[in-house]
Amino acid sequence: MVLYIEARIRADLDELWARTQEPSQHQRWDVRFTEIDHLPRAEGEPQRFRYATRVLPFLRVAGTGTSAGEKERPDGTRTSALRFSSHPLSLLAEGSGYWRYVPDGDGVRFLTGYDYRPRWGAFGALADRVLFRPLMGWATAWSFDRLRLWLELGITPERARWNWIRELLLRTLMITAACTGFGYGRLLRLTGPLAPLFFYATPLLALVSLSLAVLAPPLPGTPAARRCRRTPSVSVRAPRVPRTLENPR
């Protein structure tokens, strides 16, 4: 199943292009990568690159790829495409994808479609379907919204990450309180004569707390994957650029 993510970003097309094509900018907002570096290339050749992701403090998974872009198209859109391969320790073996930049009024529809082949036979295919592919889809959408916050509101990727962590901790505390009744016992002791009323209200308070933690929309400054479209509104055909790239070595 091809992964598709789309975000509408109110930003200048050239600025969006720069934030996504420059490796030092790209690695700041895209949670899927820790490092991205362009490799030397001759004039007229596709751009080769090296990337790495720190999975654990002591484990770094790297890979290489080839990319090409069409900055000027007759319809005013832009396209960037790539092919990539990963380290043998990675579940992801090789794949290809594209980014499209479609001007839309006062903003840009920034969308991606990509697919890859998992390793490790039947086990790898199952792990990919159950865990890895949904995680990759979430990470891509979350990163796209993080980029949107940077361009639209000036919230840096680093600040957006801390906003997300703080909100996640708050929601976790609310869920813990709702499930364990933490703090309600003390509330009953403090209310004295009104304790019976609060005793019967405790389940309602827990339900409200749980509902807010799970269902409340993310704060405006917090990146959220749910803000991105996960299926195309119309049939989308992959651009021809990926087919012109050589397989990465």
Rank of each mutant, 00 (worst) to 15 (best):
R48E: 15
R8S: 10
L205T: 00
P196Y: 15
A93L: 06
L131H: 11
S85Y: 02
L215N: 07
I175P: 11
Y51A: 02
E94D: 12
R159I: 06
Y184F: 14
I175D: 13
A206M: 11
L39A: 12
D145E: 13
A224W: 13
Y4P: 00
S211M: 11
R129N: 12
G105V: 07
S80T: 02
V2C: 00
L170V: 02
G63Q: 01
P193Y: 15
N247R: 11
L197S: 07
P157Y: 09
G65W: 08
Y184W: 12
A81Q: 03
A11K: 00
R129M: 10
T231C: 04
R161M: 05
L204A: 09
L204N: 01
S209A: 12
R171L: 05
V130N: 06
A62Y: 02
E35P: 00
L131S: 02
W138E: 07
L151K: 01
T180G: 10
R119V: 08
M174K: 09
D145Y: 14
T180E: 12
Q21G: 12
Q27A: 12
R243G: 08
S209P: 03
L215M: 11
I9N: 01
F182H: 14
F49G: 00
P193K: 13
Y114Q: 01
G192D: 13
W138D: 07
A238M: 13
R50N: 08
P23Y: 13
E72F: 10
G76N: 06
F199S: 11
P220H: 13
P248C: 10
C179P: 06
V108W: 08
W164S: 07
D106S: 09
A206L: 09
Y114W: 14
G137P: 11
T222I: 07
G107P: 01
C228E: 09
P74E: 10
T79F: 15
A178V: 02
A11E: 08
G107H: 05
H87K: 07
M1C: 03
